[in-house]
Design a protein around this nucleic acid. Sequence first.
DNA 1: TTGCATACATACAAGTATGTATGTAAAATA
DNA 2: TATTTTACATACATACTTGTATGTATGCAA
Lengths: 221, 221
Amino acid sequence: MVRRTKDEALETRHRILDVAERVFNERGVTRTSLADIAKAAGVTRGAIYWHFTDKADLFCSMVARVTMPMESPICQMDHRASPDPLASIRDMMVGILRKSSEDPQVRRVFHIVFHKCEHVDEMQPVWQRFNEMHAGCLLRIEEGLRAALTKGQLPKTLDARRAAFGLRALLDGLMSTWVMDPDHQPQAHEAEALIDLFMSALHAAPRPAQRTVRRRVKLAA
Amino acid sequence: MVRRTKDEALETRHRILDVAERVFNERGVTRTSLADIAKAAGVTRGAIYWHFTDKADLFCSMVARVTMPMESPICQMDHRASPDPLASIRDMMVGILRKSSEDPQVRRVFHIVFHKCEHVDEMQPVWQRFNEMHAGCLLRIEEGLRAALTKGQLPKTLDARRAAFGLRALLDGLMSTWVMDPDHQPQAHEAEALIDLFMSALHAAPRPAQRTVRRRVKLAA
DNA sequence: TTGCATACATACAAGTATGTATGTAAAATA
DNA sequence: TATTTTACATACATACTTGTATGTATGCAA
């Protein structure tokens, strides 16, 4: 076999990662052997072991390639610096949802990470990164909400931490649902409408006493 | 080895399932062999192959044992029959969250299903069941919202489908976050407060034109 | 009490994935 | 141009894991 030039080697590496992304997505991570990936990429396992130390290393490298929606510049901005923190938060959330649903590579990797692999310790860098993304997103929303509170954009009775927690949960749920179904492509308008709808809840916050007496429901299974 | 009576055999079966639940949760499904489970259960692989045809069968049986929060009676009620559909939806969502966060077995199985196994076709019955749970939950929320609309509990401009989709996403996100962290036990009040907060958004719905002009944000990564 | 089915344990066969060691031809380098 | 790396391919040894086949002692039924 002909020895490849440096550029060609890099291309081989990319091809392996591309193929891994596709095959992991189709068959799951553990069910696909390195031989499967090698075959699909038109190389042998030798090539994989040359570029990556391990299957876990290959997996982590595959994930590390892509910039996740919560890591994109839209999500790194400090809402406290914005003249309109609420609008800033909204734009961030819409941006995250848009990238999650429109970028096919992001969708594939999300699908693999959430449904086609197991969260075991050998891929720890990936989980750590996702946890940091998750925590960072919550932090920025909360910061933004506090800024909105001080600017008088929101009622003083609003619990910023709780509201931020809820907004992030909404984000998680929407991303999960839209990514789970591989061929469902939500229209861009839908994400905006949903975010706007639920952010409007923050304005209605000051209702310490409920308007109706809740019916108590037995929890017996 | 002594032959067991029928009750003892049933107990063996339960013990195998209990152990599988624990070990799958700790080490992940694919990383634990049937030999591991057998050893931890104090039996041999023979016992496992007697009670279950397969590892996939064992896994599915383990999941099938438990009633998921979305399958409990609280979630099967038809909100359309309620005099207060909104309160009924609220109670359902709070009930789901409560059971998800309080029942340790539910937490373990959720954790396994979402983070410690791969969604491959050999466990299809499990995924099918979860999909049906998911779809059924959305359906019931939407039905309830429509009933609330006809009863005048909500503004006529509210998009019931969209709102239901958002509420379920909120549920998903909260469950995911609370289940992911194995030793985080949210206080019961928190779930109620979050549901109340975001359900209040539905009342504020009729805002066809946004109050401020949105700053357009570039999406370039 | 005999006989059969049960509830496992034990033993065996075979595939499969992994990691490593080695081979090799061309690119890079001096 | 000679030498050294590089970028793989090939070959091999090993360790698991699974599935099945078989053994076996006992509960249970007739």
